[in-house]
Amino acid sequence: MTAWIDFARGPLFRLSLALMVLGLLRIFIITLLEVRDGYRANSDKIVSWKEIRRQTLGWLFPMFRLWRQRPIYSTVSFLFHIGLIVTPIFLASHILLWRQSVGISWAALPQVAANWLALLVIFTGAGLFLGRALYSPARKISHRQDYFWPLLLITPFVTGYIASNAVISPRTYQEMMLVHIYSGDLILLLIPFTKLAHCVLAPLSQLVTGVAWKFPPGAGDRVAETLGFADRPTWVLNPRLTTAPVEEAIRKGGVAK
């Protein structure tokens, strides 16, 4: 068992961390490049930076927007995210591992605070899971994987909490650590390749909508060509597919500038 734990906290952890950091960097850069390509292809070069900023910050911090609509959900979700990010990074035992293996260290949370934060993550995570499962509008827009994420995310917190307060442990310390480390590695591995990537993409989502998600000129023609109607002019297929209403809206100042 020790050998399995050593593998997970040695080579496997290095693999997961490298994949997470580089993978996140990769999708961040790719998204920016796509925004650039999209912007270049657009005929409509108007970008409302103010609106993008307002939207991004508004959805990032619950007190601005979401608070008014769903106060409980927004608070729970916000606390969950805070604990999820802060606890593993600033836990004294994790920092100790860093110091032993690479030789770098930083300020640590007091152990009591870390314990409370772990509990916070566990309960808010469970709450999010239950909310999704029990609230029918949420259930309707949920995929199967959406139930899986909160459970996976709180696994290392549950096992870590039990392992560090071993009086309540149902199994031995080693078994708890095994689950703790492997689930932690799995999360790191999955982050850049799944919807967990929103940890770096969230600030970009409004940018994509605002800058890149516009129809490039001639898009309709290409659709027509792909569908095999290349010989017919686009408006024959759908007379409403013209840019006239948009242009008119711009003229009137309806689309923010």
Binding site: P11, L12, L15, S16, L17, A18, L19, L22, R26
Partner: peptide, 10 residues
């Protein structure tokens, strides 16, 4: 690139 780098760390 990313996968190979991760594999290298492994």
């Amino acid at each position: 690139f990313v996968l190979a780098a991760g594999f290298g760390f492994l």
